[in-house]
Nucleic acid binder design. Structure first.
Ligand SMILES: [Mn+2]
Ligand SMILES: [Mn+2]
Ligand SMILES: [Zn+2]
Ligand SMILES: [Zn+2]
Lengths: 127, 127
DNA sequence: TTGTTATTGCAACATTGTTGCATTTTATTT
DNA sequence: AAATAAAATGCAACAATGTTGCAATAACAA
């Protein structure tokens, strides 16, 4: 297993994602970093963070990719099988960690990964 | 309301999608059309087909976009809120029209659209 | 402090999707 | 069977997003 190093880019990107209440896209991260590093580096750091399970990748309903922090509350088991809500108005993507959908696939389908996104209007925007 | 016209491009693209058992991407469609029309036209036809609810758009777990035919079995009501299965091996995306997941969002979230994708190994590939 | 190698910057490239505009095609009307 | 209006197309140009190769740099273990 290859080792990993702590760099300022990685630290700052992880901090950004962790402190955000909503999932962030590559470009949003780039804007917030204000030239700290190259955009290619951001892609590579994000890949590493996902690989290390510090962050999870969310594919939005429009195909856009965002990143959200992993909340490793529970000790051992940790799943990303929760619903993500995408607001059509403020364009934020929120992890709804407590909402786990139930479904039953026909047998012989081996499930490995899951991506559930619901779009509409978020509580903030419905007022 | 604007009207729509039947063109060979539209006819051929709809035929391709309808005859396929799996969802097709823009590039797969382009390859199958063998130069019948420009790639921009394919994008525009696909938009129209989705608009007319003849086809539905599926965002895959990897962010790739595919198109699948709408099976308007039921008379009036017709929803796209079914699960899509994405095979990691053969890279096909299949509509599982009969599998409708159940979930309960916190109140005040107004749901408008849904995209549920599960990836893993499909029955064909698990042998 | 030094050596190893993980990480970065940069340039170049690939893929996917969009837009403007002149031209062609469809379908309706005469 | 024309003539007509506008929907649809082709083409070129552009934009957004992501990838790759490689030389230079930085992290960190020894
Ligand atoms: Mn997680
Ligand atoms: Mn449908
Ligand atoms: Zn909102
Ligand atoms: Zn398969």
């Amino acid at each position: 297993m290859k080792q990993t190093r702590n760099t300022t880019a990685k630290t700052e990107i992880l901090k950004l994602i962790s402190q955000s209440t909503v999932a962030l896209s590559h470009s949003e991260i780039q804007n917030n970093l204000d030239g700290l590093c190259d955009r290619v580096t951001i892609y590579r750091v994000l890949d590493r963070l996902v690989e290390e399970d510090l962050v999870h990748k969310v594919v939005n309903i429009d195909g856009g990719v965002k990143y959200a922090s992993c909340n490793h509350k529970e000790a051992v088991h940790h799943s990303h099988n929760h619903i993500h809500f995408s607001c059509e108005e403020c364009h934020t993507v929120t992890c709804l960690e407590d909402v786990k959908p139930s479904f039953e696939l026909p047998k012989r389908y081996q499930v490995k990964e899951v991506n559930f996104t619901v779009s509409g209007i978020c509580p903030e925007c419905s007022s």
